[in-house]
């Protein structure tokens, strides 16, 4: 269980670059949240505030009601793990196994090998355990990066742009992977531009634009507001647009999966 809360958080990279301008939001334990918005909106900055890599220049970020200013990145990361956009940025070990063990050793876990095995199985990377992380494909690298964080079972997982450069089967796999993490009661916060992926995996969406939250609601409500989406440089998911084109009634909450849409269209066709 972990609660993450930003209270009027500002962040500036200096020289008048205000990346975040007063963001307030609260992420409850176990939620699946998509943070979306145009390039440069401040999404990466926001998630970096959540695990203490950056400290707010004004306002506060609280993890379990403790200000991130009062804890080290390692302390926070133990609860709030973060996976970066470029997995290559963190790989240094000779083998996949070692790469996963790195965090576990840093946090002083006793059952390192057991946890490494579990993480490998979880990410379906068993057959690569002795290989170099650099020899993996892009999708496998991404999974390894996630596994190397999931190994210590943080209460929340922050993922920056998980679907960039991933093919369809990898995306499907990743979605299942994230749902599995969520079903274990973990919080998942992802930064993404991929509306279809977000619709598939998240229940809540936060829209950022120029460092300000312009929308924060159930994902299906956000995604049915084309004007709001446009302000964050996003197009509604293809399913929502399809339903609109076909003149089917406004999608009810939870009606964004392909399966449900199919049923809905079939139902309309019969009538």
């Amino acid at each position: 269980m972990v609660e993450i809360e930003a209270k009027d958080a500002w962040f500036s990279y200096g020289r008048g670059v205000d990346a975040l301008r007063g963001v307030s939001l609260r992420i409850e334990s176990g939620e699946r949240v998509a943070i979306m918005g145009e390039n440069g909106a401040g999404k990466t900055t926001l998630v970096k505030l959540f695990n203490g890599l950056l400290k707010p220049t004004r306002g506060e970020v609280l993890v379990d009601n403790v200000s991130t200013r009062n804890s080290s990145v390692a302390q926070i990361s133990r609860k709030v793990g973060m996976v970066f956009q470029k997995p290559e940025n963190q790989f240094f070990a000779e083998t996949v196994e070692e790469e996963i063990a790195f965090g576990l050793r840093n946090f002083g876990f006793k059952d390192v090998s057991k946890r490494v095995d579990e993480a490998l199985a979880f990410a379906s990377l068993e057959k690569y355990r002795g290989k170099s992380p650099f020899s993996l494909s892009g999708g496998e690298k991404k999974r390894l990066a996630i596994a190397s964080v999931m190994a210590w079972e943080p209460e929340a997982l922050l993922i920056d742009e998980p679907t960039i450069g991933q093919d369809l089967s990898q995306k499907v796999r990743l979605a299942a992977f994230l749902k599995e993490i969520s079903s274990r009661g973990k919080t998942v916060v992802m930064v993404t531009h991929d509306v279809d992926f977000a619709a598939e995996t998240c229940e809540r969406a936060v829209l950022l634009s120029k460092g300000v939250v312009i929308g924060d609601d159930k994902i299906e409500r956000i995604f049915s507001d084309a004007e709001l989406m446009g302000r964050a440089s996003l197009l509604q998911p293809s399913m929502a647009r399809l339903l609109e084109l076909l003149g089917v009634d406004k999608p009810a909450p939870g009606l964004l999966g392909i399966g449900e849409v199919e049923k809905l269209i079939a139902g309309t066709a019969k009538r």
């Binding site: 890599l53 990145v73 390692a74 290559e88 940025n89 963190q90 946090f107």
Partner: peptide, 30 residues
């Protein structure tokens, strides 16, 4: 890279001198 490794629990400030030097490996290599 330092950010990524800090998020995996790397703490450069802790440990003896030799330990600290060795902690740079996960940063220098990537």
């Amino acid at each position: 890279v330092y950010d990524a490794q800090r998020s995996r629990g790397l703490e450069l400030e802790k440990g003896s001198f030799v330990q600290r030097i060795r902690k740079y490996v996960p940063i220098i290599v990537p």
